[in-house]
Design a protein around this nucleic acid. Structure first.
Lengths: 340, 340
DNA sequence: CTGTTAGCGCCTTCAT
DNA sequence: ATGAAGGCGCTAACAG
């Protein structure tokens, strides 16, 4: 079914049919209704490829994410999807598994697919070759979760939030506070959170113990348990600040396997605010990010730039810093009294 | 950058350039290398829309899912994405929130977008108007998780697995076993699992208590807690079989809030096998589905049909029943001795 | 092995 | 307010 057939059936020209679908106001009401009726009868829908070929606009947004297995990004993608549909865009998501090479492949694939814009969560904006390619191809993009002065970003103040967590823990009487993170090099968020942690510790006049870096997800629980059992009780951290909620969940498990109670023997605080955390026992204490809104706003920023006259691209100046929160759960409590 | 420019720069015709990208074997090695070099230099990539317009094949698959907030579907989508990339296809996911109207809208959107095929998880294959539309449009599709004799499906034996769970619980000494489910009408999987539960109970000669149906996710924990505290201890179920892992997690929370220990006072078994379940405390006892593989195989089935000469569509006969498993966790144990 | 050419379906100026 | 016609970039016959 094509525009030609509809035009013939309606006894008008293809131009008129086209106008009915693109500029309804520019067609006489009677003509428009006639065409609309015929089109509906024939089940006609404008062919997306032909339209794209002609207009050079695909109305498709690419999305580059580390993984959907982390609910943080699944929640964000849900927000992206909703905002995209609302804006008349389709999305093509590609996951990278936190691998740099995959980021480049993903962008190449999306570029070849002719997307109008891209939303991406990269390892590190400073080292992401993928962003160079986008700039070279003049394809607008927005970074989500990442924060960098030279790129348009939608993020939260990871560093500040992390420092606040430390202050909170200190207020609860904790002194031996350790940070748990995935591979630091694989994520600028983890780095920012670690910086915030160090700043918070310094402010409190506390010495920060070495970072507990857990490279592989599969072995995270075992590695964490080793850490918790290795130290003597008086040297063991009384609180763990985890760089994300998934790690917090694994830390709680590791504590359990080590015979430690959460939060009595060791407090655990996460970062991300995944919805699931509220339903766990103990309920996760965590920094909440507006994951859904991060997705929504990323799309909005992109769409606004795309519809702006001149195919504008979002600028670093338009970056958004969304408010974060703190969810009091049950995985964090005051330090054992012997230390307060 | 277009094929014309590449052809001129290389001193060949556009047909030759086209062949280099589509049938490399049909071009003399020397010519091919020349063209490839020029193309790379110019950063040329075939325009997807033009190619689609010409070939009538978009190399895009639509994916219709209830939600990404349930890790089950996130895991599946990950599998779909990997298989799609491997097969040279891009994917466009759309979520429905378990709403029938959204299923139709999703399919309409995908059809308008010109997808080559669709993978979908629907509420109920028997009542899904969306499937009619696909058939009418002659667009190949595969159902994932759903099971229905009249449609091509990739699923597991939900009914059998559920009956097995009951048998397992009975073996552990449980007699008062209750089933927990979301809105039964919203999911044929839930219905199959319930049927399996009833069958299992009948086989064991036990009377099945009324289904505990929890319509709204937000209030699930409170509703479940009400159920657990309402009954007198001697009437309370000693085991809960939950229609999915998310419900199992919430059931564990509800038990905790009701002052019941899991698994000592009440055993909890889930269904889905989400990866996260292994990291919880207590670790989730659950029926495992190969979520990743369900996605992979759905794509494979579709792609095979698409590449088959004649744009064949997958048939109901090619449906796949993948093996499920049972993961022993810590949320399930023998019934309190007073009942064994 | 390579070149020429006719559309795929649509939008958009330019006329009328 | 409507119509006629060119061309977006590409592939697939067909010709040589």
């Amino acid at each position: 079914m094509n525009i030609q057939t509809v035009a013939e059936q309606a006894g008008v020209s293809v131009a008129t049919v086209s106008r009915v679908f693109n500029f309804p106001d520019k067609v006489a009401p009677a003509t428009r209704e006639l065409v609309e009726r015929i089109a509906k009868t024939l089940g006609y829908l404008p062919n997306a490829s032909a339209r794209t070929l002609r207009t050079q606009r695909s109305r498709v947004l690419g999305v580059v994410l580390p993984t959907l297995l982390n609910p943080t990004f699944a929640e964000c993608l849900q927000g992206i999807a909703e905002a995209a549909v609302a804006g008349g865009y389709a999305i093509v998501p590609v996951t990278t598994g936190y691998e740099l090479a995959a980021e480049q492949r993903a962008v190449a694939q999306l570029l070849a697919g002719g997307v109008d814009g891209v939303i991406l969560v990269v390892s590190n904006p400073s080292t992401a070759v993928a962003l160079e390619r986008l700039r070279a191809a003049a394809v607008p993009y927005v970074l989500a979760y990442n924060a960098h002065p030279a790129h348009p970003c939608v993020s939260v103040d990871s560093e500040g939030a992390s420092a606040e967590v430390v202050a909170h823990l200190v207020r609860l009487g904790h002194r031996r506070i350790a940070m748990v993170s995935g591979t630091l090099a694989a994520s600028d968020r983890a780095q920012q959170r670690y910086r915030g942690f160090l700043a918070g510790m310094a402010t409190a006049g506390l010495e920060a113990p070495p970072l507990i870096e857990v490279p592989f997800v599969e072995t995270a629980v075992a590695a964490l348990a080793r850490h918790l059992t290795a130290a003597s009780p008086s040297a063991r951290p009384t609180a763990l600040f985890c760089s994300n909620d998934l790690l917090a969940i694994r830390s709680i498990r590791a504590a359990h396997l080590s015979g430690l109670r959460v939060p009595q023997d060791v407090a655990v605080v996460g970062f991300d605010g995944i919805a699931l955390g509220e339903d766990l026992t103990p309920a996760l204490t965590t920094v909440t990010q507006p994951n859904h809104d991060i997705g929504r706003h990323s799309v909005d920023m992109l769409v606004r730039a795309l519809s702006g006259s001149g195919g504008g691209t979002p600028t670093a100046e338009s970056s958004l810093l969304l408010p974060h929160g703190f969810r009091e759960g049950e995985s964090c409590a005051a330090a054992p009294s012997s230390f307060s």
